[in-house]
């Protein structure tokens, strides 16, 4: 034992370390490095090329005075809140329907989930067509006799964001349903039996017993939806390209246009940093609850 050489700490697991280089590089260089780089450069007056002339919070001041950005934020808020509430409600509702030991469960699940396999571009273009006032839903309702019916979200500044919302819910609610259904199936069947012996009606069992038990599933769904909301870009580009006018602009699109079209890197960096802040506001409490909380409990 005594003459066995103690292996060098760095060389221990050398193969594993070598194998992990791509992961370490991605984590450090891209996720940490690039993020910091962008945050730092959001305090500069970079235009066409990144520079290091620091101008403090100038970019942010300009950002919050830009009409297009304010509309983007407003859209994101409306879209975000609606899609959060609707996705969770619809997803849970559909999951409870599928949980009733129904026939054709697989078929219906397949139907509800297939839009999730499609890209946002395909989704956006499809709904652009369905919502086309001259050929789509509006025309059909009118041809049924309701002449004054107006539903042209993609051409009406006031409701355009809801047109995008319809497409987004169609595309994404299947995912939430599948997550919720997995959560429901994870509930101990004996809980249901106990509730029946106690004489508790089904809807009450869902509300007072099952939903509280599914808290982690709801949190997961919430985090996933939020991360998706902030990233929303392709859907808008395909469905409205920000129009009519700038009525359906979103922050992600603002960033990319400042970056590659308007040659205003400083604005792009400031705007993307704001997006990051939004995500952190959601993610930090979640991470605290999920990881910090666990450590305290056990």
């Amino acid at each position: 034992m005594a003459d066995a050489k103690r292996p060098n700490q760095l060389l221990r697991n050398l193969n594993a370390k070598v194998a992990a280089i791509p992961m370490v590089a991605t984590a450090l260089v891209v996720f940490v490095g690039c993020t910091i780089w962008t945050i730092v450069h959001s305090f500069t007056k970079s235009k066409l090329l990144p520079k290091t002339d620091f101008v403090g919070l100038d970019q942010y001041e300009r950002l919050w005075k830009t009409n297009k950005w304010l509309i983007s934020i407003e859209n994101l808020a409306i879209y975000g809140i609606c899609s959060l509430v609707l996705s969770i409600c619809i997803g849970f509702f559909l999951a409870t329907l599928l949980d009733q030991k129904i026939r054709f469960e697989n078929t219906i699940r397949t139907i509800i989930l297939y839009p999730f396999a499609l890209s946002f571009v395909v989704t956006g273009l499809t709904w652009q067509w369905i919502l086309n006032p001259d050929f789509g839903v509006q025309k059909i309702v009118r041809s049924l006799g309701w002449e004054s019916f107006a539903f042209d979200p993609l051409y009406n500044q006031d409701i355009v964001i809801y047109g995008i919302l319809i497409a987004a819910i169609w595309q994404g609610s299947g995912l939430i349903m599948v997550i919720m259904l997995a959560g429901l199936r994870g509930i101990d069947q004996e809980i249901w039996k106990a509730a029946r012996v106690d004489g508790i009606p089904k809807w009450k069992t869902y509300i007072f017993i099952v939903i509280p038990m599914m808290r982690p599933v709801f949190v997961t769904a919430l985090v996933l939806i939020t991360a998706g909301i902030v990233k929303v870009y392709d859907l808008v580009v395909a469905q409205t390209n920000g129009g009519p006018g700038i009525a359906s602009e979103v922050p992600a699109k603002y960033v990319i246009e400042s970056m590659f079209k308007n040659q205003n890197l400083g604005q792009a960096f400031a705007a993307s940093t704001m997006m990051l802040v939004t995500v952190l506001i959601i993610l930090v409490p979640y991470a605290y609850l999920e990881y910090g909380g666990k450590r305290r409990a056990k």
Binding site: L28, F31, T35, T38, K231, A252, I256, L265, A268, L276
Partner: peptide
């Protein structure tokens, strides 16, 4: 590193686009 990686999944791509 793994934790950073997972948290990285939630960073909006826009933040990292230009440095890449």
């Amino acid at each position: 590193f793994f934790t950073i990686l997972i948290f990285g999944a939630f960073i909006p791509y826009q933040v990292m686009l230009y440095p890449i």
